[in-house]
């Protein structure tokens, strides 16, 4: 569990972050969203003390972060950033080994950990372990960046726009992978993004920030259906909202008995994709694999219900 307690940061008298309090439960993902200059990155960097808070406290479990030497604190917390920040002069394996080495792990243990993480992230150790980062693709570099952040089994992982440098196609895949790995490891995750779509996709809870203040901290469905302020509403995008809400549920939820022609779709398909498919192919209903159908009418009703 991590708890931010009335955190503020002032630069020459001007508040960049003002009186932010929030709690992220163990194993959950919190997404910090806001426009640039909203203070979301500063807030994140105060957690591992890359920025010292002017006021307030950070609690990691029962420990006050201010009571630990900054560099020792940072070794306990995973950190992954946009453009990955891999050391260009170290191989993939050496990059992953950085924090375990700083913590004085035994070499055999480090080596096993490198292989374990590389396999987890779908990188064949035999092929990639001894390569330098520049010999990897953008997506691979990004995965090594996250693997490196997780190397010393941190209880908490901080990510600052980790997918910012990826093209949209790979980004979706990277988000799915991250979500799966986070669930598997049970790591608490705080991620900064300017992309509401990404926040909805990843966050168990979303913190919306503007001008240094925390406007709303709530689960995605609540952010979408009950935005706390006009700013939050604008950020979500009023017109897009019904569709975003649709992307939260799967076809399974609207499945009804019946028959329809065509290839059955997977029950895990999001409602949004199903709606898109109906409209695209001009069909009134789609078959769902495992029996039943989902109808265009039901999808539209759900979308309209959401917009009210």
């Amino acid at each position: 569990m991590i708890r931010l307690d009335h955190l503020s940061k002032l630069y020459s008298g001007r508040a960049v972050v003002e009186d932010v309090s929030l709690t992220v439960e163990t194993g959950q993902i919190a997404a910090l969203v806001g426009t640039s200059g909203s203070g979301k990155t500063t807030l994140l960097r105060m957690i591992n003390r890359l920025v010292e808070p002017t006021k307030g406290r950070v609690w990691i479990g029962d420990t006050d972060a201010a009571k630990i030497e900054p560099h020792l604190l940072r070794r306990r917390i995973g950190y992954a950033i946009q453009g990955h920040g891999l050391f260009p002069h170290r191989t993939v394996g050496e990059n992953i080994a950085i924090v375990p080495r700083l913590l004085g792990w035994r070499e055999a243990e480090i080596s096993a950990r490198i292989d374990e993480l590389m396999q987890l992230f779908d990188l064949d150790p035999a092929v990639y372990r001894d390569r330098l980062p520049h010999a990897l693709s953008g997506g691979q570099q990004q995965r090594v960046g996250v693997a490196r952040a997780l190397a010393a089994r941190p209880e908490l992982l901080l990510m600052d726009e980790p997918f910012g440098a990826l093209d949209p196609v790979i980004r979706a895949k990277a988000q799915d992978d991250l979500r799966a790995i986070q669930r598997q490891l049970g790591t608490t995750l705080v991620i900064v993004t300017h992309d509401m779509e990404e926040a909805i996709q990843l966050g168990d809870r979303i913190a919306v920030m503007d001008k240094g203040r925390l406007l709303q901290f709530a689960p995605p469905s609540e952010i979408l259906t009950a935005p706390a302020t006009p700013f939050v509403e604008a950020l979500v995008g009023a017109a897009e909202r019904p569709f975003r809400l649709l992307s939260l549920s799967t076809v399974d939820a609207l499945r009804e008995p019946g028959e329809a022609p065509g290839t059955p779709i997977n029950p895990d398909t999001s409602l949004r994709e199903a709606l898109a498919l109906c409209l695209w192919e001009g069909r009134a209903a789609l078959p769902v694999s495992g029996g039943g159908i989902v109808t265009l009418a039901a999808l539209q009703a759900r979308a309209e219900g959401a917009s009210r």
């Binding site: 591992n48 990955h84 920040g85």
Partner: peptide, 17 residues
């Protein structure tokens, strides 16, 4: 590259390291 320096600091390398 600033991102490399930022990552180094974020991972807990001391100034000297």
């Amino acid at each position: 590259p600033p991102s490399v320096l930022e990552a180094a600091r974020g991972m807990g390398l001391t100034r000297r390291q």
